[in-house]
Amino acid sequence: MKVFPYRTLAGEVALRVTAVKQDQKDLHTSVFSGDERVVALHQVERDDWTYARIGVTATLPVKELDEGPWQDVSVVLVLTEKATNARTTAVLRPRGSDNAEWTGRIRLWRAAHRSQAELSVSVVATVDGVPGRIIGGSEDNWVVDLTARTPVRRRELQINEVDFATGSEEWLRPFKDAPWIVETSGDLPTVHLNTGFEGVSELLNSGGAPLERAVRDMLATQIATDIWTAVFHSAVSDLELDEEGNPEWPGGWRDAVLRGMLSDVLPGMSGIDALSEIHARRRESSGWNELQPRISYAAGRRAKVARNLGTAIRVLDASQKASKA
């Protein structure tokens, strides 16, 4: 729980993107989404752009600001990306008479970013004679996605259907006899499904008879178990430490994976405790092996092993009875 030694804003500070321009060209408003709070810069599908200029409006709780002890209020737009340590700021200007809406724009240089930047707003004021204090900010930040074509938050691990033997990704060639391979090194973990492995794609896309569906779901569960296990290990191995040697939340998909699975891997611990614990066990190798069943259990839960296996057994049972009868 967080407290401040001075008064901060209780009201909501809202941030919304109003316009995006890329290298002199005004982009259609469909490149950003207010509901998803995402700007998708790859909609135009070109990589050789230099900068994007993002126009925003921030809405402040005016009544509270007027009545509060704050002076010299200013509003700052902040664009950051963890992966590149880039940080850009821009000052917003009030619009209208009541100072409720502040507008401005910020420039995102392509060269300074890699995949996803975060856009937030901070309200800064003089409090008790101390200038430059942050008294509030946007809770729901925007994501500026440099690789997305549509402005939606990517909330799924990726699936890539490709023939390992003949596809463009040469590194997959040695695996041409494998039905699938999990890759966790990219921006988002991806499972490559080998379309050259006869029947895999067809089976996963099949429907129809209960038995067929049961087998399909079993296969999907098996692949998913593989993926969740791999992404969990990958996320744990990439943790960065702060100055005191405590692990930090990694951000991005790793964050989502860890937060989603740690409660099953190390139940009864708060998130940060579980993160420290898993990091310690892995580093010291003490208790790491003991943890494997729990990781397997957590991955199995994400992959819905119990449900899909149960269904398969019931269906199999029913079909056997039917064939005997």
Binding site: E156, L157, I223, A224, R302
Partner: peptide
Amino acid sequence: GPKALRELLGLDGA
């Protein structure tokens, strides 16, 4: 990708 598999890969769907 196949729907049966995609359903199991949601990052938010803990």
